[in-house]
Design a protein around this nucleic acid. Structure first.
Lengths: 347, 347
DNA sequence: ACACTTTATGACACCGGTTTCCTACAAGAC
DNA sequence: GTCTTGTAGGAAACCGGTGTCATAAAGTGT
């Protein structure tokens, strides 16, 4: 059978071995591998059998050299949220599994002035098949242009539909925040604070927009004192919530633009002796592990992150041999409000 | 200057271009690239200047083919702890940064019967420079043997020093748990429960061992009823803690073998109306984000995970051009007990 | 002055695929 | 029976590096 496939030290078969064994030329073997249509069925079968018998697998390095293109998908990110990055990886990898593509991870510095140059040299060197850009750097149009210029496929993850839907996998942040804040209003809250994400982040802007729209729709004016900027970090949530809870009259509910800041807000409330949700309702965003495990369990918004990763990978593989059917309209994913125990009617 | 380096469409220079421009042979350029010692200083400089001027970068695919070895480090894992996986990635990547190595991520199924075969085909295909094995699969000797057989460098991450220290980056789980439990005993606890990790995991065994040794050293007998197995998941922590708190006399402290189970235990205590730490002290393990953000902030053990990642990468790069000085004795890393607010003397 | 290293470099094959171009042959048109 | 036309498959060059070995020039000892 696989006589020499497992003998340690025995070299792996190459395309030449297969050609010799099946009595055809390299090129014909290559045609078999690449499912060329102009091939005699009988020849194909003969070569195919040899390939199976020997356990031959084409050498990816040689292919990459000849094709000037690697079977690698890059994940370029600058995102501190471990769960998000890993969720993405998981989604992408689940689609890549069984194909000849592999995932290569490239964290970058958003702050760096050489960001675009760094990514450029990475893409040029590795000749990736495609890249997935995670927020916040996915919001950088310069990177998208770079990919276009380099002929590298790309998908941008984001919190809102952008113009180039072809390259976008997005979630409906604004709408779901609208829903969340409307829900707070629905249970009776009128003074609602928001801890926003940092200025310049699309996600921060979208979420804030959803917040303001919900208030506007309910005929509630936005009190600027109830809008405090955070940095998406725990400490900033703690600080921002303290500031909000100093206002008078005190807000009865807070929407935090991510879970980490929401848990900071929870701590701030506790320091003031406030009970959540009796004295203060809190809603977060992301549904990280912490949301479910904190006390009280946090009402929050769940991003279908793994699904989005799958969609991104499918987009990148579209048109290749390994392509999976692309689900139509899967550019926009709907986040979901997860009801737990951090919301109650105001006293 | 870099006349054609940035003209879109202009092909990237190859080794042939450099050879032609500097009037030497390909081989000599290759020698310059690889810092060959038997090279005239003057020639080197001339070629080096051309390389700099043109912005030439060797094609990694061609190198991989010729060398039969890729400049890729693999991260093979089957670990549900996002923070741990990402921390590792971060550590590894910080060492890889600036080198020509890239990181390629490969999650696997521990359960799968084809585990070793999967990893084998992955390694054979990609011809990685080396791999980092994360627990729990790093505990599988079969994989280590496989790497040896394939001539692939590897580093195993683990929770205890194993025999092959050359391939090991470990933490002192047992000792630090001993320290943690001794600390509980020190503040007065006598009935201490443990939620262990699942049987078969080295980390679970080590932590349990540390627990038992600490009790033994204090002359306290281990009550089998106070040892409950968990699965490292939140729900199992909740369940296990409920079981422990049903015992009478009730334990006054619980050591949970990871933070997720510790937070489950916290919930169990809250359901029974128990105050942590007044009625029940809890110590966790991992220092995940949740530990600091939960209420009360969890006393726990911090793995120097990023540092361990760096060490692993340094080990894999040792002896290469990109090698960084290997810190001697960095096979064993010391975890640290982080004191927060979930421990108090028993009533 | 001679053989004998040592040093610096080049020619050429090779890694394992793909692409281009060409040939041989069979089928169909006239 | 000759002339296209189409199809299956092969030869050789190529992708961009590296290894092996040969060679010319310079240095060394006697």
């Amino acid at each position: 059978m696989d006589s020499d496939a497992n003998i340690p030290g025995s070299a792996k078969p190459t395309i030449n071995d297969i050609a010799r064994l099946s009595g055809v030329s390299k090129k014909t073997v290559s045609r078999v591998i690449n499912r060329s249509p102009l091939l005699n069925e009988e020849t194909r079968k003969r070569v195919d059998d040899i390939i199976r018998e020997t356990g031959y697998v084409p050498n990816p390095q040689a292919r990459a050299l000849a094709l000037r293109r690697n079977f690698l998908i890059g994940l370029v990110h600058d995102n501190p949220n471990a769960q998000m990055v890993l969720g993405m990886q998981q989604g992408i990898l689940s689609v890549l599994k069984g194909t000849e593509y592999e995932l290569i991870v490239r964290p970058v510095d958003r702050g760096s002035t050489t960001l675009v140059a760094d990514v450029r040299s990475f893409l040029e060197r590795q000749r990736l098949h495609g890249v997935v850009l995670l927020p916040p750097i996915s919001e950088d149009d310069g990177l998208a242009r770079l990919c276009d210029e380099l002929g590298c496929r790309y998908v941008r993850m984001g919190s809102a539909e952008l113009d180039d839907a072809a390259h976008m996998v997005a979630s409906n942040d604004q709408d779901v925040v609208h829903e969340a804040v409307s829900y707070l209003i629905g249970v009776g809250h009128r003074r609602i604070g928001i801890i926003t994400g940092p200025t310049g982040f699309r996600s921060a802007w979208e979420r804030r927009q959803g917040f303001e729209r919900a208030l506007a729709d309910a005929g509630i004016a936005v009190d600027p004192a109830l809008v405090v900027e955070g940095s998406y970090r725990f400490e900033s949530g703690l600080g921002a919530a303290s500031k909000l809870l100093d206002c008078s009259p005190r807000p009865t509910a807070i929407f935090a633009s991510n879970d980490e800041m929401a848990s900071g807000a929870l701590h701030a409330a506790r320091r003031l002796g406030l009970d959540v949700p009796a004295d203060l309702s809190i809603i977060g965003f992301d549904d990280t592990a912490i949301a479910a495990h904190i006390w009280p369990p946090l009402t929050t918004v769940r991003w279908p992150i793994v699904e989005m990763g799958k969609a991104a990978a499918r987009k990148l593989l579209a048109g290749t041999i390994d392509a999976q059917p692309e689900v139509p309209g899967e550019a926009l994913f709907l986040s979901q409000l997860i009801h737990r125990a951090s919301v109650a009617p105001p006293k």
